[in-house]
Design a protein around this nucleic acid. Structure first.
Lengths: 216, 216
DNA sequence: CCTCGTACCAGGGTTAACCCTGGTACGCCG
DNA sequence: CGGCGTACCAGGGTTAACCCTGGTACGAGG
């Protein structure tokens, strides 16, 4: 089974290459960023790509962005994403935007090499592998399709100003609306971007802003 | 040359073991925390130990604490510390408390395996190896006027995670600190970035995040 | 030794952000 | 015409974020 690796951290990536080679994989390529990965996979499609979620230049979601491109260009390639942190919104994107053949594991939570290589093989065969704690977190969430596209014009305008760092008060002044109206729009934005209330792990406004900035 | 490895992240540690074995080292042991490391080194001293700076239980400075104990118990053992983040105070402690035979490298900045294994050998032979950027930072501090440059290493780390959308609670979990400590760092970041309190026009957290993202 | 900077943390107080419910108004479409 | 979506807004309640003060500990430097 042929695998390519994408991670800008050389020490980690090279170690991974050896672990997978030892497990019987044919490591046919290693790259340090998303663009290189997409090129490599297009030229010489592997069975599966193991991809670090955060890579240059933005260290934000380059891995998943590259994965999306690969899925469009070479749909048969399995995509195993590795992350340093639990990030539900990224996992959600994986679940909703990709139709099988995807994995999302936490680097620090892989405790057994055999299980890890089995997981990579499962992804290559079209299965879905998600970190168990993430699965728990994901239960109950509804599927969404391009959440940003669901925003009304007004909501998009509000989010654009939020992304410029305006407070709710300033938003109300700027748009000649009441504070109550702004609050309503902001809440509606969160709902549509599937940023559920009660999540203590995320600062939802910052996440909404990051979502908006990434779209541009 | 005999080496032992200490890192609780299995994937990373196992990869490292293979890299070093391939480079001709005899990997005689692997452990997941500082106490195990000290025991192992006492029982069967290697030539050099490669140690993750942050390990259980506190994820704070277990690596360097264990290194200090090893230096006292078996002074001939070389000590290579690996860190995820730039932490000047730890590097400084290494330079001042240890008399040769020490190294401090950033995991994400090791870009060449041959150089890395050479560095490990140098440390084993009693030399000092420090990440080059860290050297620059140690020598040329306070040269810039950029507010972001005024942040301490800790504050920069906090801001980086804020920019990933982590809430204060998640920051505390992630960094194994108290919520109070995180709040203190966040407030300090705002002060240093000239984001004054009482300004109703701006959402200061979002602005701080935008500032960080623009810098990258 | 003393001072300073950094790191960590607790106690206690404030508030903008957030959230839910309920209402009016308007345009569009079947 | 009625239903639906969107926009605007009020009332009322909750809380994570924010902020200040004060404390310990440690390392570095004069």
């Amino acid at each position: 089974m042929r695998v390519v690796l994408a991670d800008d951290a050389v020490l980690f990536r090279e170690g991974m290459a050896r672990i997978l080679a030892e497990a019987g994989f044919d490591v046919v390529g290693q790259v340090g960023d998303g663009a290189e990965l997409v090129d490599l996979v297009r030229r010489d499609p592997p069975d599966v790509a193991v991809i670090d979620l955060r890579m240059p230049p933005g260290y934000s979601a380059e891995g998943i962005d590259a994965a999306a491109k690969i899925r469009m260009a070479v749909p048969a390639v399995g995509l195993m994403l590795l992350s340093q942190y639990v990030e539900v919104h990224h996992a959600m994107r994986l679940m909703t935007d990709f139709d099988g053949g995807v994995g999302y594991l936490l680097k620090d939570r892989v405790s057994d090499l055999t299980t890890f290589s089995v997981d990579v093989r499962r992804v290559a065969r079209g299965e879905v592998v998600i970190d168990p704690e993430l699965v728990t977190r994901l239960v109950g969430r509804r599927r969404q399709r391009d959440p940003l596209a669901e925003l009304t014009d007004r909501e998009r305008q509000v989010l654009g100003l939020m992304a410029q760092g305006l407070s709710n008060t300033a938003l109300a002044d700027e748009m000649h609306l009441s504070l109550k109206t702004i609050e309503g729009h902001v809440n509606s934005i969160f709902t549509k971007l599937d940023l559920a209330p009660g999540e203590r792990d995320h600062h939802r406004r910052v996440l909404a802003v990051l979502r908006f900035l990434r779209q541009e």
